[in-house]
Design a protein around this nucleic acid. Structure first.
Lengths: 360, 360
DNA sequence: ATGAAAGCGCTAACAA
DNA sequence: TTGTTAGCGCTTTCAT
C-alpha cells in the first residue's frame, strides 16, 4: 500500500451529491473499479477494494438509484402506484410493507395524480414513467381503467373494472395476458351484511347503491339481492337508490327512502361513506339508530369505529390483501405461476347500528 | 401535411418500454424535437408538434422519470423517506398527500429499510440514493440519526434526536444549517396526560418511560414531572420504570409497579404500545381498568380506540404535522424563510381507561 | 487487475 | 425550425 501519498488531509469534499467520480478520484482508481467494488464483482485486488471501500465510507457514497436503474434491468424496487394516500391505500401499504420486509426489495409508493388535472389516467402515466427503469414490478391500487400492457409485471388490487381476463380481444381471440387481481369477496360480503339484517328480523331492507361505473358496486348489489332471494324476501326496486359511494350523494338517496310511506327498517349502504350519509339523514328526520333504523356499511374504514353510534359494517382484509399482492408480484417476478384472480374473505363486524326492527 | 406516406398501418410497436426514440422514429423527427414538444418548449412548427403529439398519444409515450431526472435539476417530485409503512407514517402520509395536492408536485414515498440489515442508517442511504436526482426535496419521517448535510432540502418529522440546531460543530462554531423539524409538543402532551389523572384525584401516578436514546421519551418524562410539580405532588423515583416504547418491555415495568406495596392508582405510559402492555398486566393481576387502575397512553394510534376498554391517550395531530412539513419543504424549495422548529399541539382524548382512584 | 469507452433515455446548448 | 451532440451517473463489455 505504498502508492504515492494518499494524504490524510480531508479529501476535497465535493459540494453537491457525491458521485462515483468523486470516489474514483479520491481513491485514485477508475470509476469502473469503484463500480466493481461497490457491486461486489470480482476482478479487483483486495488491497484496492479495501482502499475504495474506505473512501466510500468516508465520503458517505451511495449509488444513485436513478443512474443505476437506467443502466441495469433489475433494481429490486417494487412500485406501488396509487392515486393518493387515502385510508384504503395506506391500509394496503401496511400489509404490503409487512410482507415485503426481508424479501430483499425496497418499496416505492408513487402518487402521480397529485394535481386535479391528472386524476384520470394516472395508472398508465405512472406505469410508463416508472416502469422498465425504476421499478421491477408494480402493485396498482384501485385502478379505474384496464391496465395497459406493460413492460413490467403488474398486480391490481381492488380494480374497479373487469379484469382483462374476462374480456375478449377485438379479433375474437381470448387475450393471453391478464392483470392478476386481488380483491375481497364483494358479493359474499354484501350477502352477509344483508343476511345479518334479515336474521335480526328485518324484511324491508333498502340498499344504497355504489357508483354505477365501478364493478364492486354491481357485485355488492348482487350480494344484496341474493340474500333477499335466499330468505324468500321479494326484491323491491323501490328500495334501491344510487349513492355513488359518497356521503353527499347518499343523503338524497336516504332522504327518499326514509320519507316514503312504507319506509324500510334497515339500510345496507354500499360503503361506509354512504352509510354515514344515511345516518346523517336519519338523525335529521328524528329516527334513532338502531332503534328505528338499522344501518350496515361496507369497507370498515377507521372512521366506522369512531362515529356515534359505531357503524356495523363489512370489513375488507386490507392488510392481507396487500400481502397477497406482494406474494403474487414476487411470484411473477420469479417466473412462478400466478393465479389470475384472488378473492379474500370479507367479514361482518357488528357494532352499534344494527338491532331488530321496531316492535319486533 | 403532405409528407411521403405516414402509413395508417399500425406503427411498428416496440416490445419493451416506449422511449423517446420510438416516438422520434415514428414521427420522422429527431429526439430533440420530440423533447421540445413534450415539454412545451417553443421553436417547433405547429404542424410538426401536432404530428408528434399524435404519435405520442398513439404509442402511449410518457417521459421516463428516471431518465429526465438524471438530466434535469428539478423533477417536481417530493420524496418521503421512511423506515416502513407503519401507522404513524401512514397517518403522516395522509396529511402530506392532502396538503400536496394541487401544488404541482408528485409524491414518492420510499422505504429503503425493507430488510433487517439496513434498519440502521436508512436515512442517509435513502437520501443519498434519491437525493439530487430523483427528488427535489425530502420529508424524513422519524429519523433516528442526525440528518447529514444533503444536496436537497430536508424536513424532519418527529426526529428522535436533537436537531443539529442545538448542537455545536467540532470547531466550536455553531452550524449554519440545521434540518427544520416538525413535531408535536411532547412536554405539554405529557403534562396534560398527567394533569388529567391529577384532576381525577390521583396522587400516586406512575410513569412507564420510553426509549432512553430517543429525545421524545425524555420530553415526555419531563412533562410528567412538571405536572406533578405544578400540583405539589412530590416526585417518587420508584414510580418511574423503563418501558422502551414497547408493549413487551412495558409488561415488566408494569408488573413491578403494580405488585409493589403502595401501588400506584394510575399510570401514564410513554406511548400507546406501552399502555397496552400495562393493561395486559393489570388484567392478569385482576385489576379492573379504570376502577382499580387508570391508564393514559400517548400517540393515539388507531388501535387505541379499538382495545377494550378504549384507551385514554394523547393524540398527536399527525395529519396536520404532515401538512406542515409539506408547507415548510415547499417554502424551502422556493427560497422562502423556514422556521427551524415547529411544534404542533397535542391534545388529550378521554376514553374509558381513566376514572377517579378507588374510594374517591 | 485495471481502465477506456459505450450506452441506458432524456434535455439543453449549439449548429445548421 | 430542426437536428447534432454532449453529458447526467452508472454498469458493463472489451482492451490493455
Amino acid at each position: 500500500m505504498s502508492r504515492e501519498a494518499h494524504p490524510r488531509i480531508p479529501l476535497p469534499t465535493p459540494v453537491g451529491r457525491i458521485t462515483i467520480n468523486d470516489v474514483a478520484r479520491a481513491a485514485g482508481v477508475s470509476v469502473a473499479t469503484v463500480s466493481k467494488v461497490t457491486n461486489g464483482r470480482d476482478g479487483v485486488a483486495a488491497a484496492t477494494a479495501e482502499r475504495v471501500m474506505e473512501v466510500v465510507t468516508q465520503l458517505g457514497y451511495e449509488t444513485s438509484l436513478v443512474a443505476s436503474s437506467l443502466r441495469r434491468s433489475r433494481t429490486n424496487v417494487i412500485g406501488i402506484l396509487l392515486a393518493g394516500f387515502d385510508p384504503f391505500a395506506t391500509e394496503l401499504l401496511k400489509g404490503i410493507s409487512a410482507e415485503a420486509v426481508g424479501k430483499g426489495f425496497e418499496l416505492l409508493a408513487y402518487s402521480g395524480a397529485i394535481s386535479d388535472d391528472n386524476t384520470v389516467g394516472w395508472e398508465r402515466r405512472s406505469l410508463s414513467r416508472l416502469g422498465g427503469t425504476l421499478i421491477d414490478g408494480a402493485i396498482m391500487i384501485t385502478p379505474t381503467i384496464t391496465i395497459p400492457v406493460s413492460s413490467v409485471p403488474v398486480i391490481a388490487v381492488d380494480p374497479h373494472t373487469l379484469s382483462e381476463a374476462d374480456l375478449v380481444a377485438d379479433d375474437g381471440a381470448a387475450r393471453p395476458v391478464a392483470t392478476p387481481t386481488v380483491e375481497c369477496d364483494n358479493v359474499e360480503g354484501a350477502r352477509a351484511a344483508t343476511k345479518h339484517l334479515i336474521d335480526l328480523g328485518h324484511t324491508r331492507i333498502a340498499h344504497v347503491r355504489g357508483r354505477d361505473d365501478l364493478e364492486s358496486a354491481h357485485l355488492r348489489e348482487e350480494g344484496y339481492r341474493e340474500a333477499l332471494r335466499d330468505a324468500g324476501i321479494p326484491f323491491d326496486p323501490v328500495l334501491v337508490r344510487d349513492g355513488g359511494y359518497r356521503a353527499a350523494w347518499s343523503t338524497d338517496a336516504a332522504h327518499a327512502l326514509l320519507t316514503m310511506p312504507d319506509r324500510p327498517t334497515a339500510i345496507f349502504a354500499a360503503n361506509d361513506l354512504s352509510a354515514f350519509g344515511v345516518m346523517e339523514v336519519a338523525h335529521e328526520l328524528g329516527l334513532r339508530i338502531p332503534l328505528d333504523l338499522s344501518v350496515v356499511g361496507f369497507d370498515d374504514i377507521p372512521e366506522a369505529a369512531s362515529v356515534h353510534p359505531r357503524l356495523t359494517t363489512i370489513a375488507q382484509p386490507l392488510q392481507a390483501m396487500g400481502a397477497q399482492a406482494v406474494d403474487m408480484l414476487l411470484a411473477q417476478l420469479q417466473g412462478r405461476p400466478v393465479p389470475d384472480h384472488v378473492q379474500l374473505a370479507s367479514h361482518l363486524i357488528v357494532r352499534e347500528t344494527t338491532a331488530p326492527p321496531p316492535g319486533h
